[in-house]
């Protein structure tokens, strides 16, 4: 009797999970459905669910109305600069903050981590003023350079100094005997970092690289503030402009949205396991 009751609850749980998943998929399906319709189908009432005929032309039409491929190239330039910068600066800093014992290290680490609590816009204004005084707005310098000093594009996960937190968390799980042995063999810190720590930390490095990729690719705030010349626009700024231009032409807007989602989706599907591992690490207490 008890057993059967448990079975019923389990069935209910599984059904619940799948019903919720269906609800979560609905926006994607609605986007797909709308991106393949023509204007008359979009504004047909009662609503139709399956596009017929399928309007593949929406994609070329939407994507050639603005130089989206230039925007993508611009986005990639910034993303690559940031990913390289974050990997460089965070590897060095996380090593210094976890594998070397020095006085005041943990206090310095916690001080750095307070930056996660700071409202991003409060620092954005002085940063903007400084960059514009230096004449560097409308270049990619303000967007890329902070990454080379451990400051990632703002976001809840993987932004700001969060990458250092994540990496330090992982470095601390590597047994100290490993670098002590290398140290006795006469290896310096740089050798230990490159030969011992980095090879063991590949999953974590890939994880912060992917996070940085997505956060930078998806970032609207920084490009919005620093880039005003259209030839410098990123894909997100392009989308924002596109919304203004095609206000209410939902079939084009959904085609563009689908196009903007694809790179992020691709990166996620390729690196799925690293994301889940990385976020799980971040939830550990440290």
């Amino acid at each position: 009797m008890k057993k059967r009751f448990f079975g019923a609850r389990r069935a209910l749980g599984i059904a619940g999970a799948f019903v919720l998943a269906a609800m979560w998929l609905t926006p994607f399906l609605w986007m797909l459905r709308s991106s393949l319709m023509d204007m008359t189908q979009i504004f047909q009432y009662p609503l139709v669910f399956v596009p017929s005929p399928v309007q593949w032309e929406n994609f070329p039409n939407a994507l050639t109305s603005l130089p989206f491929f230039d925007y993508i190239r611009n986005s990639f330039t910034i993303v690559l600069g940031c990913v390289a910068g974050i990997l460089f600066s965070c590897t060095l800093s996380a090593y210094g903050l976890s594998r070397i014992a020095w006085k005041g290290r943990d206090a310095v680490f916690y001080l750095l981590m307070t930056s996660i609590m700071l409202p991003y816009f409060a620092t954005l204004i002085p940063n903007f003023v400084i960059w514009s005084e230096l004449g560097l707005t409308n270049t990619y310098v303000p967007l890329i350079l902070p990454s080379w000093f451990g400051v990632g594009t703002a976001s809840v996960f993987g932004g700001g100094m969060f990458n250092i937190f994540l990496l330090r968390q992982f470095f601390r799980t590597i047994p100290p005997e490993l670098d002590e042995a290398a140290f006795v063999d006469g290896a310096g810190h740089m050798t230990i970092l490159l030969r011992v720590i980095v090879p063991l930390s590949k999953p974590s490095l890939i994880c912060i690289g992917l996070f940085t990729f997505l956060n930078t690719w998806n970032d609207l705030i920084n490009p919005l503030i620093y880039l005003s010349k259209e030839n410098r626009y990123t894909i997100q700024l392009g989308l924002r402009t596109f919304i203004g231009m095609y206000n209410a032409q939902w079939h084009y807007l959904m085609a563009a949205a689908l196009f903007a989602i694809l790179p992020a989706l691709l990166v996620f599907l390729v690196g799925q396991r690293y994301f889940v591992e990385g976020i799980a690490t971040s939830g550990l207490k440290g």
Partner: peptide, 9 residues
């Protein structure tokens, strides 16, 4: 080693 983060901060 922590210099990038310290400067960034």
């Amino acid at each position: 080693f922590s210099l990038p983060a310290l400067l960034g901060f």
